[in-house]
Write a protein that binds this DNA or RNA. Sequence first.
RNA 1: GCGCCCGUAGCUCAGUUGGAUAGAGCGUUAGACUCCGACUCUAAAGGCCGCUGGUUCGAAUCCAGUCGGGCGUACCA
Length: 581
Amino acid sequence: MIHMIQRAEDQAAELAMSAYRAAVADGQLPQADIQRAPVEIPKDPKNGDFTTTFALAATKALRIPPRNVAQILLNYLKLDGSYFASAEIAGPGFLNFRLNKDWYRDVLAAVESEGEAYGTSDNLKGQKIMVEFVSANPTGPMHMGNARGGVLGDTLAAVLQACGADVTREFYVNDAGHQIDKFAQSIEARYLQIIKGKDAVPFPEDGYQGDDIRELAQTYYDRHGEDLLGADVQVRRDTLARFGLDINLPKMKSDLERYKIHYDQWFFESTLHKSGFVKETVDKLTARGYTYEKEGALWLKTAEILTALYRRAGKTDKEIEKLDLKDDVLRRANGFYTYFAGDIAYHRNKFEIRGFDRVINVWGADHHGHVARLKAALDALGLDGTGRLDIVLMQLVKLLRDGEVVRMSKRTGKAISLSDLLDEVPVDAARWFFNSKPDTQMDFDLGLAVREDSENPIYYVEYAHARICSLLRNMKSEGMAVPKVKDVDFTLLTGETEEALMRQISQFCEVIRLSARDYDPSHINRYLVELAGCFHRFYTVCRIKGEEAHIAQARLKLADCTRVVLENGLRLIGVDAPEKM
RNA sequence: GCGCCCGUAGCUCAGUUGGAUAGAGCGUUAGACUCCGACUCUAAAGGCCGCUGGUUCGAAUCCAGUCGGGCGUACCA
């Protein structure tokens, strides 16, 4: 659990600060309120491994030109016993640090001792987090957006876990409400059409038109015949809805499992209604004075709650007025609770009953209008939705083939479903491509995903791994095993490509941290491509086989550590690391 | 109308919360295998970071406008 980047960064900051304090003590620099020296990693390695912008940032407070500040700091800098070999002034006043052998050795030592755990941390230790994702309507097949949401949610959960959080993956099943009624009535109509003939039974105007509904009706008919023909309408619909869900849900589950997505919990909306939790939650809002009745319906004072919230956030009344905030119905005039009411109860359950510290929902961008009001409702319940509920909105997916937008499957003529996609594209390619930055609209190119060449970055990364495995096999057959760090002479790893590779290895933990912080696990993909690139460059320049034994061993160790990190990274995003390709 | 997201190389995208000469990959062009896997590597060309102002030592990044694209604005879920 050693973050090598963090350690070096902290050390550079401390060195700069103690140099500053020493300079102040000597009267060389004026006293100012500076807590910590800002440290960054320069984009260009020519500018050192770490840099502090202390002099630039402090120039105003100190009233001294930045280069002069930097020069005085440098005079007082003591690098003995640190991870740094040297420091120098550059540009307008950057103070650049260069790492020494001790640090590189400690990086590989961390990989060696932590193995599969290398990259994990305890940044989020003790936090109980739920990631709810996909939660597609069980009334029909899942679409492309669900594939992206599935991969994103699952990978995000993995990243949070790697940061030490206690993570639950959950699928919320909307098995109640209007949508399900429509589902029931649609199957019912198809069922009755089978018995009485197509023209004898009208199909509901807003019913589900899809063939999957016909198939459900047919399957029911095949198994149970006409037994529902004379049944009570409500019984008939309930039975058919139940029947449909019992077929659809396992199908969804298995489709998601093809994507290597496994849930800890499938949570049924209906349980919230049956147990009275929805009613109780709405009553609680009423008791707190956040509801009113109008035209027979019960409304939530969304506008009022949000107005108070926005005022506290510093918005002016004029700005708030422009937003034209509206209230929301919780209980319809017909006595039924809305989806929104159920959703409030559901999230109250997450926080209050199950005690999650933080809840993350992965939603399609088309639901963004619901973010503010759900948080507001939770705030009204005293559950701090604003602070503890995070919604990751992901933009929709556009499916392409040879640059053309694909809407329908050529084979089936229907919208392309999750399993259709996997029939055409390897799972790992799908996992790789869908793990992209959530807030950019994404093109998924079917042609590219199946290509096994350099245009497809996943093969670039996998190839690096396979190459290392092959190398290890070769060396093993020649009798050379991977040495322990304590037996490696690090003064032999001084090449540019060797150091670049070690630095890249050291950044893994930081990348996971950033992925968790930004809710964007695609940082991992980019990191892995870069890591693979560092390795390929190293491999081109540095030979192992046939080199002098100590050099060969040191390089072999470096290659093996690279392999471990590639595996850890690929595992995190749910992609296999092949030993041969 | 109002709100949210996105405009960066021909294409697909990065840019670690304001830092140095804006970076990759693909594509294009020119090179590198008697040698551990060439599914690789090296180099070149390619940019008013949509546009206009502002904030400051310093802006692709923050603020205000503006123009494009996507999405939303239900007693649907």
